[in-house]
Amino acid sequence: MEVKRIQCPNCGVVLDVRNSKMEDEKLITCPQCKAVLKVRFRHEAPLEAKTVLAGGLNNGETQLGGMNGATQLASASNAKSCYLCVAGQNYPLAIGLNTVGRKAPSSQASLQIETDDRYMSRRHSKIEVRELAEIRQAIISNDQNKNATYVDGQELQPGDAVILRDGSEIIMGKTHVIYKEQ
């Protein structure tokens, strides 16, 4: 029986995959994010784990290789990073849910913007960053704000969710924010 250690390309959880039937390829489900992963076993090449989506699209790839029995993990994602730019200061967005708000001692935002703008709430908006087919997608919605949020001149209404594009202008309170991809 062959056992390989892989890392889920979606959520990052590390899994041990058992290949008791010496298969060339095996489908497993990540217990954390429920993504279906295709794991290839090759005797002279590194192990690969790919996310399998409906339609056969690949949603990232994790390659594994071993030296003297040790397994090494290496992520092979080509996705662009994304961040918010405020007055020349860059604030990187993490994959998953980012709560954006004004920096204050009582702020619980995961991404706190350095500003004196009292019209920007301490939890002004939510930006969810998803990685799809080696592309990062950022989706903005309102959070616990009392003042308006605008994306490219359009006011976000309660329940709205807008996909951001490189260069999208966001106004939170009176603070101008630019969404960037790199």
Rank of each mutant, 00 (worst) to 15 (best):
M172L: 15
S20K: 10
A161L: 00
D117A: 01
I28A: 00
Q72F: 13
V177M: 07
R123N: 15
L57N: 09
E181K: 14
P46F: 07
P92D: 05
S141N: 04
V17M: 07
G65Q: 11
E48P: 06
G69T: 02
P105K: 06
A45Y: 09
Q154N: 13
L132S: 06
S121N: 08
L156N: 00
G69H: 01
G101R: 05
E128W: 03
H176A: 13
N78I: 11
R5L: 04
C30A: 03
V13D: 06
I139R: 06
R118K: 14
C33N: 07
R118G: 07
A104N: 09
E181P: 00
R5P: 01
I139Q: 05
P9M: 02
Q89D: 13
S106T: 10
E169F: 01
V100R: 03
Q182A: 12
S77D: 13
N68M: 12
T149E: 00
V17A: 02
N19C: 05
Y83C: 11
G167V: 10
K103R: 15
T71I: 06
S20G: 15
R5A: 02
P31G: 04
K174W: 00
S106Y: 10
K21H: 05
K38H: 07
A138C: 08
N98A: 06
A94N: 14
M172W: 00
A35F: 08
G96M: 05
P105A: 07
Q112L: 03
V14D: 01
R165A: 08
P31Y: 00
N98G: 02
P31C: 03
S106M: 10
R102P: 08
T62I: 12
A76Q: 15
G12A: 11
A54S: 15
A74L: 15
S121M: 03
G101A: 10
P9W: 03
N147L: 05
E114V: 13
Y119G: 03
D117L: 08
G159N: 02
T175Q: 10
D16M: 09
V36C: 06
Q89G: 04
K80T: 14
A74D: 10
A94E: 15
A49S: 12
S107C: 06
S75N: 14
I135L: 06
C33L: 13
I135G: 10
N19R: 04
L164H: 06
A133Y: 11
I171V: 14
A70F: 15
Y91F: 09
Q154S: 14
N145T: 15
I163F: 05
A109I: 09
D152C: 07
V52S: 04
A148T: 05
H176R: 14
I170E: 06
A148G: 07
K50S: 09
A104V: 03
G66C: 08
Q32E: 13
A138P: 03
L15E: 01
A74W: 12
C8N: 00
A79G: 10
G96H: 06
G159P: 04
P105T: 00
Q7W: 01
L97N: 11
R5N: 01
A94C: 12
E131R: 11
M22G: 12
G159E: 04
T71D: 08
V3P: 04
S141W: 01
E131L: 09
K34E: 13
N68W: 07
K103C: 08
H124N: 01
P46N: 12
E2N: 08
Q32W: 07
S121D: 10
Q108H: 14
H176N: 13
I95P: 09
L73H: 05
K50V: 15
